[in-house]
Design a protein around this nucleic acid. Structure first.
Length: 516
DNA sequence: CTCAATGTTGCATGT
DNA sequence: CACATGCAACATTGA
């Protein structure tokens, strides 16, 4: 019992399946659980709903730590400035944290590790955010991330099952460890309120998905009770526009690490046990493997959140069109299905996966021809489950830039929603302005005769916008532009010298030598 | 090397 | 209602 340890919470806002925390408790005399409000991550681009989820999760974590006679210390500032001060002040000898593969996190953690060394602090980190050690997946695929799900499955099956989650520490585990906290802890290190952080909470909507580990495990329990539903789950068969979510909405909890992906995986395995059940890619296990797939790609592909200098991303001449972008972001494209989804996104912070497909295709290759990077920023701000790797990966997928290439398959902003919601109840919920339109016009109100618009109390072009584009026209044009981008891609692709006879320049020859 | 099969979730129209 | 086909047609993978 000689160590004074900081466990640094970043993601992984939980006590269950937290191997770094357990490692920190080993021979630990004094434990300081710390969360740093890093302005690089938590700023204006981090939306209000996300802030609420984060603050809720931190409150929950503090509450759970109290039950272990410990406390959470919220510290404001940049990690590189915060830690040297804390190392000295608390006479720290050990720092533990969960491994994080985001580029910013990797450089941040390297900086803090160097500072720790300077202060004689031992650093221990553990993999627990993902099912597997992502680096091992890349190694197993000859140093490159798999670009298809099939390939990913093959690699993962070689690695065997994910590790079993480890239990949360108990009072018994921590009985020789204390957390020194003063009377003014709340003042100095307490979890701030949204108000204190300067957020205008007057217009915030009802909290549908409260943050925190306790809430996460409760929701997991509830879903795992639905044996039939879990065993029959097929993602493409779930509805993007049901009034209640047709999927689990456990994603925000996994994103912030309130719920361990491995805990989720093994609870599903228990439900599946001895029963006929769906399989990846469409099953719930399959969803966790998709997460793993994009995490692997994001670690193995440079500049993964950009088109430029991203070696696997098709280079497309997207338009710079601030008016169209603003209309999309602010739910005034004139396509009720699209605008309803964008409204749900803004107010509730969660939309169904296929709803994301519809609005992402619409913004990029389908209709507005705006870069996926712009959409990525909006999702990053507004989605409770906004995750760097998944967001970048899925935007590339939907824009047919990477992973997915059948760009002639275009979602219709009118037809797609009708398949699962003929009467447009979803649209009526999120765009009440349109609620009096009869079902035959609810997806295309501009086609309604003037008399119908008057009866509905909503004149198109005045009370609700006319459609921004003619879908059928721009769809055809955009497929042409995609064809062009792909042709350029094939032409630019470096080919073996034997195939391109006489084109092997001295430059490329020397490059080959350099690269071995 | 070539070539065929495959790819989580398109749409409209037909049987 | 489930399934098949044309639309115009891509990259990756594995044999």
């Amino acid at each position: 019992m000689s160590h004074t340890c900081i466990h640094w919470f970043r993601k992984g806002l939980r006590l269950h399946d937290n191997p770094a925390l357990i490692a920190g408790l080993k021979d630990c005399k004094e434990l300081y659980p710390v969360f740093v409000l890093d302005p690089y991550l938590y700023n204006k681009a981090f939306g209000l709903n996300r802030w609420r989820f984060l603050i809720g999760s931190l409150r929950d974590l503090d509450c759970s730590l109290k039950k272990l006679n410990s406390r959470l210390f919220i510290v404001r500032g940049e990690p590189k400035d915060v830690f040297p001060t804390l190392f000295k002040k608390w006479k720290v000898s050990k720092l533990t944290y969960e491994y994080d593969t985001e580029p910013y996190s990797l450089s941040r953690d390297q900086t803090v590790t160097e500072l720790a060394k300077e202060h004689g602090v031992e650093v221990i980190y553990k993999v627990s955010h993902t099912l597997f050690d992502i680096n091992r997946i890349i190694e197993a695929n000859n140093g490159k991330p798999p670009l298809t799900y099939k390939r990913m499955q093959a690699i993962v099956s070689d690695l065997g099952s994910p590790k079993k989650p480890i239990p949360a520490p108990t009072v018994n585990d921590i009985k020789y460890t204390s957390t020194p906290s003063s009377k003014d802890h709340e003042e100095k290190f307490g979890v701030p309120t949204l108000d204190e952080l300067g957020h205008d909470i007057a217009s915030i909507s009802e909290e549908l998905f409260p943050g925190g580990e306790v809430e996460a495990l409760k929701r997991l329990d509830e879903h795992m009770k639905r044996t039939q539903w879990v065993c029959n789950f097929e993602k493409p068969q779930t509805s993007p526009n049901s009034l209640m979510p047709s999927t689990t909405v456990l994603s925000p909890y996994v994103t912030f690490g309130c719920l361990s992906a491995r805990t989720f995986w093994w609870r599903l395995a228990e439900v599946y046990q001895g029963k006929k059940h769906s399989s990846p890619p469409v099953s719930l296990h399959g969803q966790l493997l998709w997460r793993e797939f994009f995490y692997t790609a994001s670690l193995g592909i440079p500049n993964f959140n950009k088109m430029k200098d991203n070696p696997v991303c098709t280079q497309v001449d997207w338009d710079n069109n601030p008016e169209f972008l603003a209309a999309w972001r602010e739910a005034r494209t004139g396509f009720p299905f699209i605008d309803a989804i964008m409204t749900q996104l803004r107010t509730e912070g969660w939309i169904h996966h296929l709803a994301r497909h519809a609005v992402a295709c619409f913004l990029t290759r389908g209709d507005l021809w705006i870069s996926w990077e712009e959409g990525q920023k909006v999702f990053e701000e507004l989605l409770l489950d906004g995750d760097w790797a998944l967001n970048a990966g899925n935007w590339q997928w939907l824009s047919a830039s990477t992973f997915f290439h059948q760009f002639f398959r275009v979602y219709s902003p009118v037809a797609f929603g009708k398949k699962t919601d003929k009467t447009g109840d979803y649209i009526k919920k999120y765009l009440p302005l349109l609620k009096k339109f009869p079902p035959q016009y609810i997806y295309e109100p501009w086609k309604a005769p003037r008399s119908v618009q008057q009866a509905a109390g909503c004149i198109i072009g005045k009370d609700y916008p006319k459609p921004l584009v003619e879908h059928e026209v721009v769809r055809k044009k955009n497929i042409q532009r995609m064809t062009l981008a792909y042709a350029k891609r094939s032409a630019d692709k470096p080919e073996s010298p034997s195939k391109k006879q006489g084109l092997s320049s001295p430059v490329s020859a020397s490059l080959e030598l350099t690269l071995g």
